[in-house]
Simulated assay, not measured.
Amino acid sequence: MTEETAIGGRPPLSMRLAGHPSLARASAWLRRQASLQAGRFGLWTPVALGGGTAVYFVLPAEPAFALAVLALALAAACALASLSSSLRPAASRVLVLAACLLAGFALGRMRTEQVRAPVAPEGGEVRRVEAWVVDVASPGQGGSRVLLAPVAIAGLAPGETPVRIRLTLRGPEPPPAPGTLVSVPALLNPPPPPSSPGSYDFARDAFFDGVGGVGLALGQLRALPPSEAGLPGGLVLQMRINAFRWDLTRRLVDRMGPDRGGLAAAMTTGHEAFVPAAQVEALRA
Rank of each mutant, 00 (worst) to 15 (best):
Q279I: 12
I241N: 07
A77C: 08
A278T: 11
V136G: 10
G39P: 08
L13D: 09
P46H: 06
S199R: 14
P276H: 06
E272S: 12
V275C: 07
G262I: 01
A265P: 01
T53L: 15
W132D: 03
W132M: 03
F41T: 15
C100K: 03
S196H: 12
R170Y: 10
G198L: 10
V151K: 01
M239D: 04
A149M: 05
I153L: 03
R10A: 13
L97F: 08
P89W: 02
N242T: 00
T268D: 03
V47C: 09
G233P: 02
R164G: 02
R240P: 00
A99W: 04
V94E: 04
A137T: 12
L102P: 03
M239N: 01
G210R: 00
T53V: 12
L72N: 07
P21R: 14
R25K: 13
A278E: 14
A81N: 08
Q238H: 09
R10N: 03
L97R: 08
L87W: 09
M110T: 05
G270D: 03
G9D: 06
E3D: 15
A265T: 00
G52F: 04
R245S: 11
R204V: 09
A24P: 02
M15G: 07
F274Q: 04
C100N: 08
L102A: 14
Q238E: 15
R255S: 13
P176G: 07
R245F: 09
P191G: 07
A177S: 15
R32V: 05
A90T: 12
E122W: 05
R250D: 02
R251M: 04
Q238M: 09
P11G: 02
L102H: 11
R222G: 05
L43K: 09
S27W: 14
P178T: 06
A285T: 13
L237K: 15
A229E: 15
R31D: 15
L187I: 06
V182H: 05
W29R: 15
M256V: 00
G219P: 12
A120M: 12
A91W: 11
G124L: 09
A24W: 08
R164F: 15
T161E: 05
E281G: 01
A177I: 04
P192T: 05
D205G: 10
F57V: 13
A6M: 05
G179P: 07
R251L: 07
Q279K: 11
G104S: 06
G215N: 06
R164H: 14
A26W: 13
E272Y: 13
S84G: 13
I165G: 10
V119D: 05
G233T: 03
A223E: 15
D205L: 12
G143R: 02
D135C: 01
A149H: 15
D205Y: 13
G270A: 01
V182T: 08
T168H: 04
A99P: 04
R25V: 14
G262H: 05
P190E: 06
R127D: 06
D201C: 11
V55R: 03
P89V: 07
L237H: 10
A229G: 06
A206F: 07
A206V: 01
S27Q: 11
A229I: 00
A76Y: 06
V55M: 12
P89R: 00
T112S: 13
